[in-house]
C-alpha cells in the first residue's frame, strides 16, 4: 500500500530571493528519483506539503506550471518554524515533498473564455502557475483574451519581477502591474490599489472568468468591483488558506462547514463560498 504521508526526496536546485524585505524565497526543486516525478502530476492551483525533517511540514501552493519540465517551484514566506527552516537552507540540500493535493483552477470552465487574473502580494504563486500554463504553446489557443492585474505594497515586494516584465512585452497577455506606493521607482508604471485599478481597467465580464487571490482585504474590496462589472459568483474563482496538517482530509482541521479545504479546495467559486459558512 502506498504511504501518502511519505515525502518524496527533492534537491534544492536554486533559491531566489524575491523581495526587498527578503522574507520571500522561491525554491526550485528537482526530484531525486525519476519515478517520484512521474507520480507527482499536478495541475495549476494545487499545493504540496513541503517537509523539513526536524522542523515539520507546511502546505505551499505550487508556483511552477506542469508545462515547465524537470523541476517544481514554490515561493515561501518566512513565518514560523517550518518556513524559517526552509529559509535557512542552501542550494544542494535535500528536503521532502508530498502531494500534489487539492483541486485546481477550473480549466474546463475557463476554456473558450476570456480570463482575468487578479493577484495581490505574494499570493500570486498559483496564479503564476496558471498563467504560465495558459501561455504555453498550444494551450494559448484554448483561452480567449488574458488580462492580468497584479499588485503589491511597493515595487520591492512584487514577486517574479523579471517574468512580469517579460509578460508586459508580450501581445498575448495584457499586464497591469501596480503598487500601492511608487516611491519614485522607475518600474512599474502604475500606482494604485488592486480594486481601484480593476475598476479603472474594467475588464469585460462577457464570456469571461476571473481568478482572484490575495490578502483578505484586497479580496473584500475587489469582489464588489467584479460584481459591478457583471461577473456572476460562479465565475469569480478564489483560492483559500486554512491551517493544515495532513493535506488529505483526515486530520480534521481545515474544514469550512462540510468541505475540507485540503481535499475539496483550496479553489472555490464565490458561488460555492456563498453557500458555505463564514468561518475562514
Amino acid at each position: 500500500m502506498q504511504n501518502p504521508y511519505k515525502p518524496y526526496p527533492v534537491r534544492i536546485r536554486r533559491i531566489i530571493i524575491e523581495n526587498d524585505t527578503r522574507d520571500l524565497k522561491t525554491f526550485e526543486l528537482v526530484f531525486l528519483n525519476k519515478e517520484d516525478e512521474e507520480c507527482f502530476r499536478y495541475t495549476p492551483g494545487q499545493f504540496a506539503e513541503l517537509s523539513v525533517y526536524g522542523a515539520g511540514e507546511s502546505p505551499i501552493g505550487i508556483a511552477s506550471s506542469p508545462t515547465e519540465k524537470g523541476f517544481i517551484k514554490f515561493t515561501v514566506k518566512k513565518m514560523g518554524v517550518v518556513t524559517t527552516a526552509l529559509h535557512n537552507m542552501e542550494e544542494g540540500q535535500v528536503i521532502g515533498i508530498r502531494g500534489p493535493y487539492g483541486n485546481w483552477y477550473p480549466f474546463h470552465l475557463m476554456e473558450g473564455k476570456d480570463i482575468v487574473v487578479i493577484g495581490g502580494g505574494f499570493a500570486f504563486t498559483t496564479l503564476r502557475s496558471a498563467i504560465v500554463y495558459m501561455l504555453h504553446g498550444e494551450n494559448r489557443k484554448r483561452f480567449g483574451k488574458i488580462t492580468c492585474i497584479y499588485g503589491a505594497r511597493n515595487a520591492g515586494e512584487l514577486i517574479y519581477k523579471p517574468e512580469l516584465k517579460e509578460w508586459e512585452e508580450r501581445s498575448d497577455i495584457d499586464m497591469y502591474v501596480t503598487v500601492d506606493k511608487l516611491n519614485g521607482d522607475p518600474w512599474p508604471a502604475r500606482e494604485g490599489f488592486v480594486p481601484a485599478v480593476t475598476k479603472e481597467i474594467a475588464p469585460s465580464s462577457e464570456n469571461s472568468i476571473c481568478l482572484v487571490c490575495g490578502p483578505q482585504i484586497m479580496i473584500k474590496f475587489t469582489i464588489p468591483v467584479l460584481t459591478e462589472l457583471g461577473f456572476p459568483p460562479d465565475r469569480i474563482i478564489n483560492s483559500l488558506e486554512m491551517r493544515m496538517k495532513c493535506g488529505i482530509g483526515k486530520c480534521g482541521r481545515c474544514n469550512i462547514g462540510n468541505r475540507y479545504v485540503c481535499k475539496d479546495g483550496p479553489i472555490f467559486s464565490l458561488a460555492q463560498l456563498n453557500e458555505m459558512p463564514d468561518e475562514y
Binding site: 504521508y5 526536524g54 496538517k245 480534521g252
Partner: peptide, 12 residues
C-alpha cells in the same frame, strides 16, 4: 479522529 503531525528531534 483529529490529529496533529509533529517532528521530535534530539541531536540530529
Amino acid at each position: 479522529h483529529c490529529f496533529d503531525i509533529e517532528d521530535e528531534t534530539v541531536n540530529d
